[in-house]
């Protein structure tokens, strides 16, 4: 039958090329995987860079939306918590906090990642982080956001920033997707209100307008 579409084409597990889903495939121990992923990232981090940091708060500089932002966080603080709790950038939402739902999607050097599966200290190596706040200047709407409004691709809207960011990243790489490709590409985001019909239309239309990827 009915081959099940792959939920996700682009791994979003952070900067080590370790996607959460690849990781799950490897271990089959999904229940505690949230913690394990984090540890794995930490290990990867410490292998590449010494000295060891923490466990207390450490100063880090994140490049967010074109600006360097200094903050002090514990090494275990996720990028998502750093954004939301320390920098008041609350466009990325916390829903599952373990790489399942996509509500926390931001761009890391242009690639969509789940900000809840990456540590802030790992995102502080000069990578360019783009949050939804950085897509368009205040009072303006990015074309993908505008297409979401036009096609009512949102109800409560809590999943919406994640979908918008995933769509922006995808359209940059794939400016002319089909309806089916969009459906596959956004499989890493979940919506409870059931806005998928609008999302499909919005992303395809944003692509048709040829503005999808450029802000």
């Amino acid at each position: 039958m009915a081959e099940q579409p792959k939920r996700e084409k682009t791994p979003r597990g952070g900067g080590n090329g370790l996607s959460r889903r690849d990781f799950l495939k490897g271990t089959g121990a999904a229940v505690s995987a949230g913690v394990l992923v984090t540890e794995d990232l930490l290990r990867a981090q410490t292998q590449r860079t010494s000295p060891v940091v923490g466990p207390g708060p450490v100063p880090v500089t994140l490049r967010i939306n074109g600006q360097p932002r200094q903050l002090t966080v514990e090494p275990r603080t996720t990028l998502l918590d750093a954004l939301r709790n320390h920098l008041d950038l609350t466009g990325a939402k916390k829903v599952c906090d373990r790489g399942t739902c996509g509500a926390c999607t931001v761009l890391l050097d242009g690639r969509a990642i789940y900000a809840c599966t990456m540590l802030a200290i790992d995102a502080a190596r000069g990578q360019e982080i783009t949050t939804i706040e950085g897509l368009a200047p205040q009072e303006q709407l990015h074309p993908v956001s505008a297409a979401f409004v036009e096609h009512d691709a949102q109800q409560c809207g809590f999943c919406t920033p994640g979908f918008v960011m995933a769509a922006v990243a995808y359209l940059r790489e794939n400016p002319n997707p089909t309806y089916e490709q969009v459906t596959h590409a956004l499989g890493g985001n979940l919506c409870r209100c059931g806005t998928y019909m609008g999302v499909r239309h919005a992303v395809v239309e944003a692509a048709l307008r040829g503005k999808g990827g450029r802000s």
């Binding site: 609350t90 709407l141 409004v149 949102q154 919406t160 920033p161």
Partner: peptide, 21 residues
């Protein structure tokens, strides 16, 4: 008619209770 709070939500500017700092 498009929802009035659509732009605030689709741009991440809408502040939910979870977002209040």
């Amino acid at each position: 008619i498009s929802r009035l709070d659509g732009p605030a939500k689709a741009s991440g500017r809408a502040k939910y209770s979870y977002d209040v700092n």
